[in-house]
């Protein structure tokens, strides 16, 4: 099934994407509002919320270049040392930019 990229077709494709994306955004609380939250569900949610980030970041470190790896490492170190996210992110970006600049 395909849509022709006429103005109407493109608009329809964008609207469909918007709808699918909104369903993912609202679906989580919609489902949660219908199931009781006991201690087990709460433990699941707490562990899951950090795990989302772990699952986003790990492949970046493993499949990325050394610039990305160094950036992530610098972020962790500076974050643990200073507890200031902006310093940590700045150190990370600097590492990646320097690495890629020096090692083209």
């Amino acid at each position: 099934m395909t849509l022709a990229t006429s103005p109407g077709g493109a608009l329809l494709a964008i609207l469909i994407m918007a709808l699918v994306t909104y369903l993912t955004r609202s679906g989580g609380i919609l489902v949660m509002s219908r199931i009781p939250i006991g201690p087990r569900v709460e433990r699941f949610i707490n562990a899951m919320s950090g795990s989302v980030l772990v699952a986003v970041i790990t492949p970046m470190a493993v499949t990325g270049d050394w610039g990305a790896r160094l950036a992530l490492l610098a972020t962790v170190v500076v974050m643990l040392a200073t507890r200031k996210p902006l310093f940590a992110i700045g150190a990370g970006i600097l590492c990646a930019a320097l690495w890629r600049f020096l090692m083209p």
Binding site: V20, T21, T24, R25, S26, G27, G28, I29, V31, M32, S33, I37, I45, N46, M48, S49, V52, A55, V56
Partner: peptide, 12 residues
């Protein structure tokens, strides 16, 4: 975008 489902659930 399916991660939004879990992110939203965690904020419920």
């Amino acid at each position: 975008n399916a991660r939004h489902l879990l992110m939203g659930a965690s904020l419920y």
